[in-house]
Amino acid sequence: MLVLSRKVGEAIKLSDDIEITVLAVDHLRVRLGIRAPRHINVRRTELDDSVGAANREAAVVADPAVTNGILTKAASEKKKQE
């Protein structure tokens, strides 16, 4: 990991087309401005992590003893509700 210090108002560049500016610092919170092309996907890491964690919880072992018939039952239950 590269670690560098920046003051408020200073920026860093990633490659040629991404620029991240430190807009404000307030105690433990840093406000960043990100200028990047539209195809660059900017996400909060913890949001990504929570989706990954939810997926890991949703993963099942493809074993018919565990999963057999679940979706068939779910489908008929869903139909009943409508």
Partner: peptide, 12 residues
């Protein structure tokens, strides 16, 4: 091959 997920059509 042992990894699977149950999904549902969002609009259904």
């Amino acid at each position: 091959p042992l990894l699977a997920f149950a999904l549902v059509d969002a609009y259904a």
